[in-house]
Design a protein around this nucleic acid. Structure first.
Lengths: 202, 202
DNA sequence: CGTGAGTTTGACCAGATGGTCAAATCAAGA
DNA sequence: TCTTGATTTGACCATCTGGTCAAACTCACG
């Protein structure tokens, strides 16, 4: 077993390689569809060697998910009550859209998990995520009460932003099958900007 | 092997039971995560008995998907160039939302498939689906040119409708973790109605 | 250079899983 | 009732897969 304290260069390199490979494989095939062998091969390790760094397939998955949740929610965290309301929301949306473009594997990892009932992160959803969303919808509600943005259901506003932006990562194949060569994200950026401006302008 | 022609009552009943059970299991666990035994048990059959009606796990999955694609696209099919533009679109949206509420398993079945790159329905996407969407976006574009609805990117308009409505079925756990007891679909119906009215009113 | 901790691997195991098959059972028409 | 085709099943198989282990190898450092 690798020592806990003072990870060696090798440990750092291999752990990183494993997580990177696991992100590829889990996001493409889901937890059950991914095999340890596949992850090991993609990470350039043998299976027993991989299991020297992580005690189980489950442990890799958990490590990935919990590490990523933070990154994933960062843009919402950044929503600032003291900024200009509409611009804050629009820039949150653009940041989410960029994440769909730049981190599609991460998006699909969560999508896989959620579609199947989130067996492994259900708790994080109803604690951390709920708390964050409650905080931010409170800000949205205050903005609405002060007439800074139009009144809409704040939770569904958030859901709609998630749905719209993550769609481009999660259902990438479908989008590309329909759009052909056209870059999805060009049009998407414009579209969501228009949409939320019209929706939220008081 | 069951005879092709003249399906007996037993055949009809068992085939239906298998597809029903398979819908449960595939939508909850994905293709790889589902086991033939599980489907058989849920259908009230033994595994060999199930494989008497369908030659393989893959065959069940294919049968399900192709049977469902039609149902799934019916609302879009119904979009009528001769109706009132805004009302046509809004009722399409409401119908999609009802499908998310009433057929969440179907939605998740497709979601599972799409998130993992649609290995089994990729062709249907770039042929049937693309053709249908091309047809309907042509209608949308004509409506826009005649000033009946606001000008937006028609493909992204469709994507946004899919994303918004299916979100409530596909990411049901997340939605419920955040909303608590509140019924998601009440608020959602109102929200999307407002959203698309504001977006599309010229 | 020697040594002990850290790293890697071939061989292996147990359980799960998709699928097969011959034999048994059932159901409906003659 | 008897026969024949449809239906059902217990036993079985090959493969895959997560995980183990002891032995081998490598590397940093005294």
């Amino acid at each position: 077993m690798p020592k806990d304290r003072a990870a060696t260069r090798i440990q750092q390199k291999n752990r990183a390689a494993i997580l990177e490979a696991a992100l590829n494989v889990f996001s493409a095939h889901g937890f059950r569809g991914a095999t340890v062998d596949q992850i090991a091969t993609e990470a350039g390790l043998s299976k027993p060697n991989l299991l020297y760094y992580f005690p189980s397939k489950e442990a890799i998955h958990t490590a990935l998910l919990s590490g990523l949740l933070e990154v994933w929610l960062a843009p919402l965290h950044a929503l600032d009550e003291n900024g200009d309301p509409l611009e804050e929301i629009l820039s949150y949306i653009q940041r989410k859209l960029e994440m769909s473009r730049d981190l599609p594997r991460e998006s699909r990892l969560f999508a896989n998990e959620l579609v199947q009932g989130a067996p492994r992160i259900h708790e994080a959803l109803s604690s951390d995520l709920k708390k964050l969303v409650d905080d931010k919808t409170a800000i949205l509600t205050r903005w609405m009460e002060h007439g800074k943005i139009a009144r809409v259901h704040p939770y569904h506003l958030i859901f709609s932003i998630w749905a719209l932006t993550q769609h481009y990562a999660d259902f990438d194949v479908q989008v590309r099958a329909i759009l052909g060569d056209e870059d999805p994200f060009e049009g998407a950026g414009q579209f969501v900007e228009t949409l939320y401006r019209k929706l939220l302008t008081p």
